[in-house]
């Protein structure tokens, strides 16, 4: 099993009022799975994704990634974990505006301290794989929204992660571009075997996943974790 959560909970304090964003979430995500997490706005989908990435601290429960228990990790351990095992694709691309497409893709490699030539080779390969080999030196503002999201997907794969966390990856794209991006994610999942956990409120996007989880009010109300 790639990732398991047991009774995962996240409680916020907002103006003195406790809000349970996640309540006793139990999940099991297999290696190479493509899981679509759906639910209405404010249901806790993004909180679940951020908690699994260590970007939010859970207030209850356990998280296991392969043979590692993650819930007690320090900030530095989480940073190393994210860097070694996770890739991210966010709704509005999260690209650094003053870095070219290639430089954005090399960011995870730069953080790892890999050498310049190796970075460049890897970034070029990935950009070609997402169909942007000829746009490597373009800045994000010189690319369309769909192209920017492709750069973000290439970056997510730079360090060969076991799991890509995608938060509404098609949220800012028109339907045609959304389909392109979903096709790309699906092909990467099938070809590279990288597991994907994609949060989306769109039923169409959710159909790209091989597994489904539906969350409402912080609770998993439907988990079709068997292949669709």
């Amino acid at each position: 099993m790639l990732l398991t959560t047991e009774n995962l909970g996240k409680r916020y304090e907002r103006r003195g009022v406790a809000v349970d964003a996640l309540r006793a979430v139990d999940l099991e995500i297999e290696e190479r799975a493509f899981v679509a997490v759906t639910g209405p706005s404010g249901s806790g989908k993004t909180t679940l994704l951020l908690t699994l990435a260590g970007l939010l601290k859970p207030t209850a429960g356990r998280i296991r990634f392969r043979d590692k228990q993650l819930e007690g990790f320090s900030d530095a351990q989480w940073a190393s974990f994210r860097h070694a095992n996770l890739g991210f694709v966010m709704q509005n691309f999260s690209l650094v505006p003053y870095l070219s497409a290639r430089e954005n893709v090399t960011l995870p490699l730069a953080i790892a301290g890999s050498k310049g030539a190796a970075q460049k080779k890897r970034a070029t390969e990935l950009l070609e794989r997402v169909g942007l080999g000829d746009r490597a030196s373009h800045l994000p503002r010189e690319l369309s929204a769909g192209q920017q999201q492709r750069v973000a997907i290439a970056r997510a794969l730079a360090n060969e992660p076991a799991l890509v966390l995608a938060d509404e990856p098609t949220g800012n794209l028109d339907p045609a571009l959304a389909t392109d991006v979903l096709d790309l994610l699906r092909s990467l999942n099938e070809e590279s075997g990288t597991a994907i956990l994609m949060v989306t409120h769109s039923p169409e996007a959710a159909r790209a996943g091989t597994h489904r989880v539906h969350i409402e009010d912080g609770l998993v109300v439907d988990a079709s974790l068997q292949p669709a």
Partner: peptide, 16 residues
Amino acid sequence: RREIGILRMLGARRAR
């Protein structure tokens, strides 16, 4: 802030 958030997300430690 945004870039710092991106770097943290990608695994950069606080010291970096």
